[in-house]
């Protein structure tokens, strides 16, 4: 039956619907590039969602823990063997995602008799200068979205990942106005928390066309932070160290929050 083109398209559409429903409750992740590096942030209830991949590369993911783990391992393996045989400078996020991860995810998604990857990932690579920061979002079907890297569209110094498209777009809209590249860690942290909150609020309301009020976002943020912890990591721009990834503890960040 699946051999018939129409059936195949139908099966793919069903599968897309199923995966979207599975990913929908995923708590948002924001990544913001600024003067001293890139900040990854989420407010987490349980599992770790932000990971180190290689010297200058980190990832955040939502989805099924088993699938995330397999993709994370694959990314680390590929980056590590490349870094070992050549050098750390030759490990490129663009190639890692475009050449290795995306084709495999696309393939798994379209093989309708096999299991797709229930995961949506956000990768970032810190550059020598803020203009060189690269953000890549990879969908379960292998689709890739970038922060505009070197092409016509205006570059963005941030990226967002969330359970639904609507939630992600609200986060991006907020960051487009609130985030500035020359900010310091404190400002960036607060922008990231706002983005997370607006994304999280949007996930809980079905048909919010208008973005929520500013005061409501702050209130939601305060409520959430009383129960959950901040999970965050930095990719530092400081070139004196090879390994740029550093995880930030909740305790370290709390004093920087502006209510």
């Amino acid at each position: 039956m699946i051999e018939e083109p129409y059936r195949w398209v139908e099966a793919i559409a069903n599968r897309r619907e199923y995966i979207e429903a599975q990913l929908a409750p995923g708590s948002p992740i924001a990544a913001l590039g600024y003067r001293d590096g890139i900040l990854f942030l989420t407010v987490s209830q349980s599992r770790q969602k932000i990971f180190e991949v290689y010297d200058r590369i980190a990832m955040g993911a939502i989805g099924h823990p088993g699938d995330i783990e397999r993709l994370r391992m694959a990314a680390i393996e590929l980056a590590s063997t490349e870094g070992f045989t050549r050098s750390a400078a030759d490990v490129s996020l663009r190639r890692l995602v475009h050449y290795s991860l995306s084709p495999v995810m696309k393939n798994a998604f379209e093989q309708v008799y096999g299991a797709p990857y229930l995961a949506r990932m956000l990768f970032a690579e810190v550059g020598e200068r803020p203009e060189e920061d690269l953000f890549l979002r990879v969908e379960y079907d292998g689709e890739i979205a970038t922060n505009g890297a070197t092409y016509a569209q205006a570059r963005q110094d941030f990226a967002a990942l969330s359970g639904t498209q609507q939630s992600r777009e609200q986060m991006e809209a907020l960051l487009a106005t609130e985030h500035a590249q020359d900010a310091n860690l404190e400002t960036v942290l607060n922008s990231a928390l706002d983005a997370w909150s607006i994304g999280h609020m949007t996930l809980q309301t079905d048909d919010a066309k208008e973005p929520p009020e500013r005061a409501a976002v702050r209130k939601h943020r305060q409520e959430q932070l009383t129960n959950a912890g901040i999970e965050a990591a930095l990719l530092e721009r400081d070139a004196s160290r090879a390994i740029r990834y550093r995880s930030l503890s909740d305790k370290e960040l709390r004093p920087l929050i502006r209510d």
């Binding site: 783990e69 694959a74 393996e77 590590s80 070992f84």
Partner: peptide
């Protein structure tokens, strides 16, 4: 067995085993 692709594999804790498997 989870490998779909020769670039993929499950978790290998030991890096030198990984390098040998890849012929590096």
């Amino acid at each position: 067995p989870v490998a779909f692709d020769q670039n993929f594999s499950g978790a290998v804790g030991d890096f030198s085993v990984l390098l040998r498997r890849k012929g590096l």
